[in-house]
Design a protein around this nucleic acid. Structure first.
Length: 551
RNA sequence: UGCCUGAUUGUGUAACGGUAGCACGACUGUUUUUGGUGCAGUUUGUCUUGGUUCGAAUCCAGGUCAGGCAACCA
């Protein structure tokens, strides 16, 4: 009982708020802008926001922060909803900042009436210049002194489409000398004639983030508005708007965004990878997007577990990819169907096997006692991995070599008698004799071997394509790497290999999770068909032999 | 030469003035019909200098380092 998990700092705040009776229940929100696909960094935020609500008995809204029609699209809205659902979360309400455009406009009018906002005719460059720098205070302009009446009329004219794009903006009148740059008369509205995916052409002025986000939170009665660290300087403005408008006081809290080794986590960079063809699409299995990871074979549960393990804090961080891999292996180990697939084959001929063929049985998952077995055809001609035979075995090599014995998984123990090479000196065929009394499950041979190999009966084998993925980038910390991030793209992040699979694989469902014995975890690609099976490697198995060899 | 965050082992994350713990990684050993899994173990850490205190990762002061802030983006 005393080993309850310690609370993160946001959970501390909420549990205090609740204990103090500040709220009866909490309401959080996940507020993506529909301008791209969600990635693992968003998953952290989703798990946080929905997790908080679940933990404290509250609710979470899904809100699209769609205030910039130039970049947004319904395609993204749909993918975001799909991803959140797939991750296993249900939102209380589906909201859109654009649903509040009328209300937001009314809020702006209130600020103008209070003398706290004005229409500025300056160009973007002039405004930037007048803002000063972090160490030099900004300077005002004459527009700042316009009368309330004039501002009211001009703002109405802006809305009515009387001005060209960029001709005027609405600004808050706060403090041009503030040490916080965001308080130096921030822009509230800009004129932009762009077709909005929901409001169409009804508006030609759109609110800025700072004027839309906090008020949207307030309108929905969000109690805890959680965002990432870069919004810390915005908080003063967030609070200012709410206070001046006298509306429901939502509060903003910030945590550190997720960074991961060997990948990038910004929509801009991910978009670049897609547009420049470094990957196939947003859901390319090498992408850190939710859709990419789903296609690669990650389970929603393993992603939730990952988000749970990385924790929530305010310091910058970079999480090892190995933690994500650990989470998915741990889950997949429990649920994946075991199958045998040979990727780089050499022929194994059993010289004393005269039964022609027989059907053997192999367990689907040794971790699951109720997992059952499947039929695996066996014959005197098999495929085995090229790397499972060594002409001159080294000391700790437990596999096949002249005179050596191994077990064929779920079948018999075989002993190598001879082998053949082609003209180039490559091994082509290995001849073995099998031990009839060593049959799996009824072994009376008394023999003990160190190695067990996976195999596929040659005449029953089904050809499949395997996408073997590796990390997208060659360096751990892209943020610390100098120059263009694209210089560090791993050119070998995808290897397509043709492999021989046991026939059971062609009868398995599309959603099945597989472990190809001794190879890794695989998941059928979205483009896979019955006649052309394609599997994506989610993650390899841990390979202590490979490590041993490197020594 | 401003303001705002932050600094605990290789990477994350706890410890709320009282034994610096947990996870991943790495490394041993062991089990195993997957060199997988499981099990047992090991693993040079509180940025720095002062101060307060019986006692400081924690409180205070100074310093150092890292990140953020000057888009008609979110």
């Amino acid at each position: 009982m005393s080993e309850e998990k310690s609370l993160n700092f946001i959970e501390e705040i909420i549990s205090q708020d609740l204990a103090l009776g500040k709220y009866e229940s909490i309401l959080t929100r996940f507020p993506p802008e529909p301008n791209g696909y969600l990635h693992i960094g968003h998953a952290k935020s989703i798990c946080l926001n929905f997790g908080l609500a679940k933990h404290f008995g509250g609710k979470t809204n899904l809100r699209f922060d769609d205030t910039n029609p130039a970049k947004e699209d319904i395609e993204y809205v749909d993918s975001i909803k799909e991803d959140v659902k797939w991750l296993g979360f249900e939102w209380a309400k589906e909201c859109y900042a654009s649903d509040y455009f009328d209300q937001l406009y009314a809020f702006a009018v209130i600020l103008i009436e209070k003398g706290l906002a004005y229409v500025d005719d300056s160009t973007a460059e002039e405004i930037a210049q007048q803002k000063g720098t972090p160490t030099v205070p900004g300077t005002g302009n004459d527009y700042r002194n316009r009368s309330i009446q004039e501002n009211l009329e001009l703002f109405a004219a802006m809305k009515a489409g009387k001005f060209a794009d960029g001709e005027k903006v609405l600004r808050a009148k706060i403090d041009l000398a503030s040490p916080n740059m965001h308080m130096r008369d921030p822009l509230l509205y800009r004129i932009k004639r762009a077709h909005h995916h929901r409001t169409g052409d009804a508006w030609c002025i759109y609110p800025m983030y700072d004027f839309a986000h906090g008020q949207s939170d307030s309108i929905e009665n969000i109690t805890h508005s959680i965002c990432t660290l870069e919004f810390i300087p915005h908080r003063a403005l967030y609070d200012w708007c709410i206070e001046q408008l006298g509306i429901y006081a939502s509060h903003q809290y910030e945590f550190a965004r997720l960074n991961m080794t060997y990948t990038v986590m910004s929509k801009r960079k991910l978009l670049q990878l897609v547009e420049e063809g470094h990957v196939e699409s947003w859901d390319d299995p090498r992408m850190p997007t939710i859709s990419g990871m789903r296609r690669r074979g990650y389970t929603a549960g393993s992603i939730r577990d990952f988000c749970d393990r990385i924790g929530i804090a305010k310091r910058e961080n970079i999480i090892d990819l190995s933690l994500l891999e650990f989470c998915v292996r741990e889950h997949l180990n429990k649920i994946a169907q075991r199958r045998m697939v040979v990727t780089n084959p050499i022929k194994l001929i059993i010289t004393n096997y005269d039964k022609g063929e027989e059907v053997l049985h192999s367990e689907n998952n040794p971790e699951d006692p109720n997992g059952g077995t499947r039929e695996v055809p066996f014959s005197n001609e098999l495929w085995i991995e090229r790397e499972d035979f060594m002409e001159e075995p080294t000391k700790k090599y437990f596999r096949l070599g002249p005179g050596l014995s191994v077990r064929l998984k779920s079948a018999y123990i075989v002993t190598c008698e001879s082998f053949e090479k082609d003209a180039a000196g490559n091994i082509t065929t290995v001849h073995v004799t099998y031990h009839p009394d060593s049959k799996s499950g009824q072994d009376t041979s008394g023999m003990h071997v160190k190695g067990t190999l996976h195999w596929v009966s040659a005449k029953h084998a089904v050809p499949v394509v395997l996408n073997e993925y590796d990390r997208l980038f060659k360096v751990e910390d892209l943020a610390a790497a100098e120059g263009d991030f694209k210089d560090y793209i791993n050119a070998d992040s995808l290897k397509k290999v043709i492999a021989y699979a046991e026939p059971a694989l062609s009868n398995d469902g599309l959603d099945a999770r597989f472990q190809f014995l001794r190879k890794g975890y695989f998941y059928q690609d979205t483009k896979s068909t019955k006649d052309h099976l394609v599997f994506n490697r989610t993650v390899t198995l841990k390979d202590t032999w490979a490590k041993e060899q490197k020594k």
